[in-house]
Design a protein around this nucleic acid. Structure first.
Lengths: 213, 213
DNA sequence: CCACTTTGGATAGTTAGACTATCCAACATT
DNA sequence: AATGTTGGATAGTCTAACTATCCAAAGTGG
């Protein structure tokens, strides 16, 4: 196993030594193997962890305390299935206003239509209800057909995503679970924006053509 | 038209007077109608704007400078189509590392497969490539079949989303465009997480059953 | 019409998050 | 033995988003 000093870890990760020390202090990076009181060696996994942290911060826009929570929770998971669940659990913050009964009912109806089961304490139910409330509070409630379209689309997507996860060796399953849950979000959202622009442009041209006729 | 003083605007929006003054200074909220040097009246649109700002900050996690840019850009748009485009443009920040040629080629191939056109300067192309690079940099490149699944799913979704936009009166089209682009993102992501958990659970149980047989 | 309250506008202070820099004593290298 | 790097502790910086204070001009109640 290759091991390196702090200086090289800094160089290879592209992060200043001071920042790596900060991550060590914050418990985001496990300490290196101590060799005497003022020296420690770091391995390949430290480098991989640093890169993962940076990706979560830069791409997924997570705060460091959330990164620590996700990393810790996923690490203690004993399977891909529980790893995904743990990642979701840590990412679904229990903050903001309580969801209304109406939005909770909407969510439950959606779950029922798709025969989706959900453990009693799962915060995703409340989180979805909260995001519906936020929109309804602005006067534009989300229609049932849009919710169904989202649910159908995400059902299709989830199958393909899990296919990918099956082809991964056990060691990197944890990292892969985090990547699958978090880092694919911007990919999906960017594609949504492109699709929206194109669909919008198609309708716009169609309307102009009709108007000009 | 109903108009109110600062005190009532604060009360009805739930925001402290100091915060509303801050938003006025920052140009997020248009000034009220001045009545003398130390008095101004605010209308219903100020209240709606404040609620929209809070939703963009709390739900869509936008920074205030981005909120200002989005609001400004969308307001000067002359149709729903251009409003959506303007919102996307302001949201697609031109930061981070340059995308690699490989990821750009992957994006272009995807666009070609779906016959999606894109204006030359559109930053969405680079943004999508960057998010692919971030994942590839961790050693788990995104497969073409996953990209296609995302593209198909988002194509379906975009049609339903635009159907909603058609049923909206001209006045609130701007707000609706912002909501459609930004506030529906958390809804979609929450549904994705629920769908993933269920798909993951289904496979997990299937595997356990096979193992126990 | 006069004491009292509210407001707009300006300015200064606060808090949280994420670093960044400095020190120092203990090693290790030359 | 001189020089240089490291771990560990501590303190300082920077930005974003408020939050608080002040003050003079305007209303308002009596």
């Amino acid at each position: 196993m290759i091991t390196v000093w702090m200086a090289e870890l800094s160089e290879r990760s592209g992060l200043p030594v001071a920042t790596i020390k900060y991550y060590l202090r914050e418990g985001l990076l496990p300490p290196g193997a101590a060799v005497g009181a003022t020296r420690a060696r770091y391995g390949e996994q430290h480098l991989r962890r640093l890169r993962l942290i940076r990706a979560l911060v830069d791409v997924a826009q997570l705060r460091l305390d959330v990164v620590r929570a996700v990393l810790g929770a996923v690490e203690t998971a004993d399977s891909r299935h529980t790893a995904i669940g743990a990642a979701h659990r840590e990412l679904t913050a229990a903050d903001g206003p309580e969801p209304t009964d109406g939005s909770l009912a909407t969510v439950d109806a959606l779950l029922a239509r798709r025969s989706w089961a959900m453990a009693p304490g799962n915060r995703l139910r409340a989180a979805l209800a909260q995001s519906l409330d936020a929109i309804a509070g602005l006067g534009f409630p989300v229609g049932v057909d849009l919710l169904d379209a989202y649910a159908q689309a995400m059902t299709d997507v989830a199958e393909v995503e899990l296919d990918q996860l099956d082809n991964v060796d056990r060691d990197s399953a944890v990292e892969h679970a985090i990547i699958g849950v978090l880092l694919l979000e911007p990919v999906l959202l960017n594609i949504r924006r492109i699709a929206e622009q194109n669909a919008s442009m198609a309708r716009f041209s169609a309307r102009s053509a009709r108007g000009a006729r």
